[in-house]
């Protein structure tokens, strides 16, 4: 990474240049959604044989939606179980692939993106899972301490007979939002920087990685939080834009449905680019705070011909 760039610029640059890497994350998203996709097949099959086919091709149908839930509750339940499976799969895949992506970003060797990302992520999977476990405990702890606890205390101070939505309750609500964001930012940054510490070899296990992350965050927490917030807002904006676009498309032809899928997947891919950008920003941020050691790749694949050329150049 060029040393002159700021973390934000580095992230934006990486988001655009490492499109293949974003594609790998997108593939992970697609793969983890497969259980749900498979379950949706038989779940929605009655639509094409039933009375709502035409109306659903036209758009939203309140009665189709409600009666579907009423007539197929068991099938819907099974589909929800599949969505749960997708959720678990997605967490595990994300741990694998994002870690691999960080290693690829560090290596500066973007190809072969998929194989390298999977291989690098697999090498660090175990300590990253431990770090993630610490993340979840940490998240629960800090949310309990800084959000649920104060809100509960405010409720106690207000008393049983306090009017709803009074000054204390309103303050509690604002506090809950702000504190939740602060906790989310802090816990997220600690975990992400710990992953970087693992990826750069600065720590061999989750505990050491978290210690390293703490050092990096020290004195520069607002800067890091700003980075997190930037990428959060950008990500949400992209999600919102593509979701609205997808809904507006409301296709009624096979080609339209295909176009809808393409557009939405494009949206998720762009969204994945923001994740790459965020990780690259954090890498640069960590590098500025603490110069990174040379990176021995876990699985040094032979470089592709054009990479050779670019390396030589």
């Amino acid at each position: 990474m060029p040393p002159r760039l700021s973390p934000l610029t580095t992230g934006l640059s990486a988001a655009i240049t490492h499109r293949r890497l974003a594609g790998v994350l997108w593939l992970g998203l697609v793969f983890s959604a497969l259980p749900a996709w498979v379950a949706f097949g038989p779940l929605f099959a009655p639509i094409d044989q039933g009375p709502f086919r035409e109306s659903l091709l036209r758009g939203w149908d309140s009665w189709a939606f409600l009666s579907f839930l009423g007539v197929f509750p068991r099938e819907t339940g099974i589909a929800f179980a599949a969505v749960g499976t997708s959720l678990v799969l997605s967490v595990l895949l994300d741990l694998l692939l994002t870690t691999g992506a960080v290693r690829v970003l560090l290596s500066g060797l973007p190809r072969p993106a998929l194989r390298r990302t999977v291989a690098e992520g697999a090498a660090l999977f175990r300590p990253v899972v431990w770090a993630f476990a610490r993340y979840t405990v940490s998240l629960a702890f800090w949310i309990g301490l800084l959000v649920a606890g104060p809100v509960f205390l405010l409720g106690k101070i207000a008393g049983k007979d306090a009017a709803p939505n009074g000054a204390l309750a309103t303050f509690g609500l604002v506090w809950a939002v702000v504190a939740s964001l602060a906790v989310a930012a802090n816990v997220n940054l600690r975990f992400s920087l710990a992953r970087i510490a693992l990826a750069t070899g600065q720590a061999a296990n989750a505990r050491g990685a978290y210690r390293a992350a703490k050092k990096v965050l020290r004195e520069a927490r607002p800067h890091a939080a700003g980075l997190w917030l930037f990428w959060l807002v950008l990500g949400l904006a992209i999600q919102a834009a593509f979701t609205a676009l997808g809904v507006a498309m409301n296709p009624a032809t096979s080609a339209g449905i295909a176009a809808l899928v393409v557009v939405r997947q494009l949206g998720f891919w762009i969204f994945a680019m923001t994740r790459i950008g965020y990780q690259a920003s954090l890498l640069r941020f960590a590098e500025l705070k603490r110069p990174l050691p040379p990176l021995p790749l876990a699985h040094p694949f032979p470089p592709a011909p054009e990479e050779e050329a670019s390396t030589a150049a």
């Binding site: 749900a36 996709w37 929605f44 099959a45 094409d48 035409e54 009624a252 032809t253 096979s254 939405r264």
Partner: peptide, 17 residues
Amino acid sequence: GPSAAAKVRAYALHGVQ
């Protein structure tokens, strides 16, 4: 012609994604 099931399935998948 077009499949409404495919359309709903696509939207549901996007929701999951």
